[in-house]
Design a protein around this nucleic acid. Structure first.
Lengths: 227, 227
DNA sequence: AGTTAGAAAACTGTATGCAGTATGCAATAA
DNA sequence: TTATTGCATACTGCATACAGTTTTCTAACT
């Protein structure tokens, strides 16, 4: 049997990534309706792979669909954010416990990522690096399903984090808490590591909540998603 | 603005349900490749809505896709089952804690469902009723995202539970553990309720694992899913 | 018999067309 | 001026057609 060396992705995969980009960087605004004809023309593909992509983005919560009305960019709401973000203090420590004691090489990688995190300035880079740090922290957790779940939570909150950091800069200062986690891990003190991890999550949460509260008082979203 | 009174689902939704059925009741076997032309003809729809449905089923793990080769029914593996099932002792108690103290009406409903569960015979009914009981238990959890996650875990393990119960009958005897949970809840003893809930999950796990182990020794799946 | 090359068939990925539904606008009535 | 009805337009849902790829079949060759 011949193995497929490269699994060249389908058009729909590429399109999905493109749309995700458009959402996180604001080219498709919060609450906006997706015009299939327009977007497909803009991307130079037909509606078929576009719709396949929209479908996937709906599955991961980036969009929602109203039958016969179309797809809409999910609005940023404090509700959704809180619910998603509150899960990570449950999921991440669970994954950390399952991962077992950290390997030295892993701790080195974490250290390096954390240094980088401290130095970075651009919001996209900061968020990406922070996410990378957390992925590395949990990399050896044997439960792939749990890791997938965490990954999807990360994707789902990225829009919020980016949106905030574009307005106020450098709010996220996770490097210190990360260091506490690493110290605890080095000592083999899993409980303390988990506690620090939970603190880390909570710290990321508050400034975004404040921003969301201030935001809805002024502008609000483009179109409310009445069910 | 005119509200949509009825949200008549799209064809793809209906098709997705149909395929899910075909998977859980074995008409589409474990590991089998989906022939789009054949299935779409069989269901009397075109490939377009069928593919949309397949896409959704891929998102929830019922199927997986190999680009340019097609969609395949995800095989039943002990690995996947363990990983999914092990998450519920993490997720369900968390949701239960968030739900707050139970309302009397809710306890009545749980009691009724549990009675029904004891009486039922047909595997489909037993599993559905057990799932319903758990949904009711967590119904008042305010974190919808968490509930969605649990729901997807339920869907993902249903195939395993059904497959087992069709061979050996009446292995699942959850009613007693359910009662322990309810008793603890009535007393307001959340810790004990959560402990019992965890036990409940573990009890469901073991017989299926044994069955899976015995199964792979004999038959195995139709086609292995080499990456 | 077993292997390999090539052609044919089958199937997936993508584009396009058409029908039915929603939406916005203009004309009419109050 | 405001509300309402009818119509034109735009868009989504679905079907179908086509192109490129994979799989299967066949047959020659070792």
């Amino acid at each position: 049997m011949q193995y497929a060396i490269i699994d060249r992705p389908n058009l729909a995969d590429t399109v999905a990534d493109a749309i995700r980009e458009m959402i996180v960087d604001g080219r498709l605004a919060d609450g906006e309706r997706i015009n299939e004809v327009q977007i497909s023309a803009q991307l130079g593909v037909s509606r078929t792979p576009l719709r396949e992509a929209l479908n996937r983005l709906t599955a991961d919560g980036s969009l929602f669909a109203k039958p016969r009305h179309g797809y809409f960019v999910s609005p940023l709401t404090a509700d959704e954010f809180v619910q998603v973000y509150d899960l990570r203090p449950i999921l991440d420590p669970a994954a950390l416990r399952l991962a077992g004691p950290p390997r030295p090489a892993q701790l080195d990688k974490l250290e390096a990522l954390n240094k980088k995190l401290d130095a970075l300035q651009k919001p996209e880079r900061v968020v990406a690096c922070d996410d990378e740090w957390h992925r590395e922290l949990l990399a050896h957790c044997p439960n792939r399903v749990l890791l997938d779940m965490i990954e999807s939570m990360i994707r789902r909150t990225r829009r919020y984090e980016l949106a905030l950091m574009r307005e106020r800069k450098r709010v996220l200062n996770a490097a210190d808490t990360h260091r506490q986690i690493m110290t605890a891990l080095r000592r083999g003190d899993l409980d303390r590591a988990c506690a620090a991890l939970e603190r880390n999550m909570r710290e990321g949460r508050e400034p975004i909540l404040e921003w969301l509260a201030a935001r809805t008082k002024n502008g609000g979203t483009k179109k409310d998603a009445a069910a």
